[in-house]
Design a protein around this nucleic acid. Sequence first.
DNA 1: TTTTTGACTTCAACCGATTGCATAGAAATG
DNA 2: CATTTCTATGCAATCGGTTGAAGTCAAAAA
Lengths: 339, 339
Amino acid sequence: MEKETTIYDIARLLNLSPATVSRALNDHPAINSNTKQLISNKALEMGYRSNTFASNLRRQQTKTIGVIVPRLDSSFMSTVLSGMEKVANEANYNLIISQSLESSRKEMANAKTMFNSRVDGLLVSLAADTDNLEHFSTFFRKGIPMILFDRVMPQKNCTNIVIDNLKAGYEATAHLLGQGCRRIMHVTGSVKRNVYADRLKGYKMALLEHGLPVEDELIRLTDFTRQDGLDVADEIARMPSPPDGLFVASDLCAASCMGGLRKNGFSIPKDIAVVGFNDDPIAQLVEPNLTTIHYPGQEMGEIAAQSLINHLNGLLRISTTNTILLNYELIVRESSRRV
Amino acid sequence: MEKETTIYDIARLLNLSPATVSRALNDHPAINSNTKQLISNKALEMGYRSNTFASNLRRQQTKTIGVIVPRLDSSFMSTVLSGMEKVANEANYNLIISQSLESSRKEMANAKTMFNSRVDGLLVSLAADTDNLEHFSTFFRKGIPMILFDRVMPQKNCTNIVIDNLKAGYEATAHLLGQGCRRIMHVTGSVKRNVYADRLKGYKMALLEHGLPVEDELIRLTDFTRQDGLDVADEIARMPSPPDGLFVASDLCAASCMGGLRKNGFSIPKDIAVVGFNDDPIAQLVEPNLTTIHYPGQEMGEIAAQSLINHLNGLLRISTTNTILLNYELIVRESSRRV
DNA sequence: TTTTTGACTTCAACCGATTGCATAGAAATG
DNA sequence: CATTTCTATGCAATCGGTTGAAGTCAAAAA
């Protein structure tokens, strides 16, 4: 196990001071360019690598961004993370990623860990049952910037990155109405979360606008598990007047529900037209292909990370831009095409 | 923005030396338990948090594990990462995650970044076109432990964590044979990768054992994209004597291929029985449900991380255990059930 | 020739925690 | 009472890079 080269080693060999070496390596303007060349050559030759810890200790920054997400093992989230990783990597930041597993308590623990590892900033998508941001107050007090994405909550000095879920919910529902559906069921998640609450609002708005009643019986709160999808299908099969349209705020659940419906003898989209949400790969793999809202995961990740980094570099004050809205797209496939 | 409390602050307030405070906070046996109590109370009261950088600088360790995976946005990989995150988190390690996007070149760049951020150890699943471990030699030279998982390559002093892909490939094929299939096609990925090469071997072995010929025409090398699946389906449809069994080494691709086959008028499993690999959520969402090999992702992640951490703590020398084999399970569902 | 200026470099004090070695004081032993 | 043995704590160096202030030296200006 060889020992590390330090700027002291380089300095000694070149008869210079460590200070000069440090400045040269950081491309400080006060250093002669010949000296810089000399030093960086030597550094390369000796396999020098900067000690981040010494540097961070002195500079009082960590070059680390904390990410807290509900789950890692979802197609959407891994796309988002993929985008964040790309941007962070390019900007020389590290990502510390942790999952709350949809539990507010775990989210608090994660926040604490992040705080202790002194992240420069935070990117968070909230757990299902989080109903306040109290556990992030330590960050606010210390002036550590935080950006919420997807599962957000209004908060002073804290940018939200989202799509217009209300409008998307509205469009999804309106599309079903446009296909001739007149009795549309909506399967949603925890309405504590903006994403589901807004989609629900959009759903209601579309109904009202078309002069249709909003029936509680047609709104189901679930956890979007596979089983939930099957249960909903069974329920539908038992209903005296089953819906002719189904808007599920998650592709995975929509897919399992379609399976259940088919087992119960429903034909899709003839008997019941289905729309999902997210445009997970699954949407194009199930039969019939699932109509859904395309959600720009990669882009959301990139923008979240980039905004935070810009803020950290003083290029953009987060507090001024308070909400970034990304575009979504309704993608119509066979599961809802009737005309 | 308040300033941080340090052990010096605590020491001053309690009329003790920083050394004592440091030892107390680390539960050093030489410190009187009353003193410890006193100090930890004060630390809590003052909102003290240890400065990892100072500590790491002094201790010469980073408490960081580097993870390089082909892609983040796959269901299997996010399950693996989820397991790693859990274990690392509990052991107070941080994860730096990066993706090679299946490119050997990007993998090299990632390795370099990891090296520069001085990870204590490395968890790697190789890119599709990586054919040697030269780019990790810097780690080997420095004695930084590395564990390969899933996409592995034999290497001295480097534990591999895998399932027995050969046996799994054999079983998948044997299962199809058991269902009466006599002409089985195999769709695989880059045979540079052990996982695909071994499954292919298992496939061949099963055929030979049942006295069936191995026909090149029935072996397809793909990238497992959705389009690849559709292409294979079209090809099958054009074949004069199409296969009656299909073993695809990826669920996603198997699913899209099933869709393509159905469009081409094939009935599954009657005309052609299908087996996938991985037990992605998709397997239970497509119609008919996909027979597949259940791959213990979460467990693989946990074991990989735990082994590395054990090694780092000196609890277990990696070099002694060279391969860890995890159990897989053939899960029979409708896509292949004929009897 | 003397002074000023500017371009580089160096000095030395940090950043905060850790740890081998020394030591004070108390308790035990002779 | 003197000496040894512990226990608990302190001293001071160390990890490696950064940075404000001070110094050097040669060229330019007075």
